[in-house]
């Protein structure tokens, strides 16, 4: 399974990178969204895969069972998911404004618009 996930993560990274290289801003946004998914999955896989080991302390226990998943990467990813939502919203609003202000979505045309 880890092997398959490694390939999945590789494909996500490749797709995100390919989209980031486009000139249309909307594709770049898609690339950013995919990139954060890829990173989250990478951290998750790096934390170790566990089936049926939710990181909750069972009744009568005072610590996690040895078979349970590592809670730390999960906490990291949880914040990352919410943050990337905020970032995505921010970029969407920004692209919308840039489109209104300049009438183009080609990043090559957007170059140097801060000077005008």
């Amino acid at each position: 399974m880890e092997f398959l996930l490694a390939i999945t993560i590789g494909v996500l990274y490749a797709a995100a990178f390919y989209l980031l290289l486009r000139r249309g801003v909307v594709r770049i946004i898609l690339g950013i969204a995919l990139l954060s998914q890829a990173v989250n999955l990478l951290i998750f896989t790096a934390g170790g895969l566990r089936e049926g080991g939710v990181p909750f302390i069972a009744e009568g226990q005072t610590a996690l069972a040895a078979t349970s998943a590592d809670p730390l990467p999960q906490a990291l990813i949880l914040t990352a998911i919410v943050i990337s939502f905020g970032v995505l919203a921010f970029t969407l609003a920004m692209v919308h404004r840039a489109d209104q202000a300049t009438g183009t979505d080609d990043v090559d045309d957007l170059k140097g618009t801060d000077q005008t």
Binding site: I9, G10, V11
Partner: peptide, 11 residues
Amino acid sequence: VFGTVMAMVVL
């Protein structure tokens, strides 16, 4: 190529 490298990093 980038994706391949990242996959290997995971492994």
